[in-house]
């Protein structure tokens, strides 16, 4: 019965849309503003094209402008060192950082295993009921957008959806070569995939709100600290 009522409502709405548009035809002809048809949108191109090194700098500058931390490193062992420094520092704060969750990328797990810090709990991609019990979530970012300091998290490439969201600290590792300059370029890449991933998230800085007297408060529901380790991969 619900099926039928849903079909009826759908039909009624489409009928109403088509009826209204038909009724409007005569009036539309008189509206000059409609004569300019929509140009098919193309992804907006950057004015000046930057090289990779300056994209990394631009990314860092824009991420820091929205209260994110950015550490630029050159090799895999630097990444391990950077992770060590971040976690070690956090362990001295109220955030404790002794319960660490990671995405299910095997490389992330290997990297974290190399970090020489005390860990109480460690989990790979904990479930919705478990994930609240972690202080730090570590994932990859599948791409970065330099002009806005934005991370692109594509959850079809690794299980990062909850790990990047629920723990108070999110550490993302980003390869310098996957930083694009503009939002348009990032969107174009996401669209090129044979099928758009079920869940893609753009992340620009830590969670924030200004709902109380427009006073900025960092870390309301999402992570309150966001660290991005950009790896330039210079070892080869």
């Amino acid at each position: 019965m619900e099926e039928r009522s849903n079909r009826n409502s759908r039909e009624a709405i489409f009928e109403s849309i088509r009826g209204a548009l038909a009724a409007s035809k005569v009036l539309d002809a008189k509206e000059s503003e409609l004569h300019h048809a929509a140009e098919a949108a193309a992804y907006l191109q950057p004015g000046i094209k930057h090289d990779v090194a300056s994209l990394v700098e631009l990314f860092k500058e824009n991420l820091e402008a929205v209260d994110g931390h950015c550490i630029i490193v050159e090799t895999r062992s630097d990444v391990v060192q950077a992770l060590y420094e971040i976690i070690n520092k956090l362990q001295g704060t109220y955030l404790k950082a002794k319960r660490i969750a990671v995405s299910d990328s095997s490389e992330i797990e290997r990297l974290v295993n190399l970090v020489d810090v005390d860990v109480d709990t460690f989990a790979v991609a904990p479930t919705a009921s478990e994930v609240f019990n972690f202080d730090v979530g570590i994932t990859y970012a599948q791409a970065g957008i330099a002009e806005t300091g934005t991370l692109v998290l594509d959850s079809s490439r690794e299980r990062n959806r909850l790990v990047s969201l629920v723990p108070p600290v999110h550490i993302a590792i980003l390869n310098a070569s996957s930083i694009v300059q503009t939002l348009g370029e990032a969107l174009a890449t996401l669209r090129q995939a044979e099928e758009v991933s079920p869940i893609i998230t753009l992340v620009t800085g830590p969670s924030r709100t200004a709902d109380i007297e427009l006073t900025l408060a960092i870390g309301v529901h999402g992570p309150q600290e966001l660290y991005v380790i950009v790896n330039k991969n210079l070892e080869e």
Partner: peptide
């Protein structure tokens, strides 16, 4: 800060 792009439901039962 966030843009969520949601396309249908998850692909695998064990996904988040």
């Amino acid at each position: 800060t966030y843009q969520s792009f949601i396309t249908g439901t998850k692909q695998n039962a064990f996904d988040d």
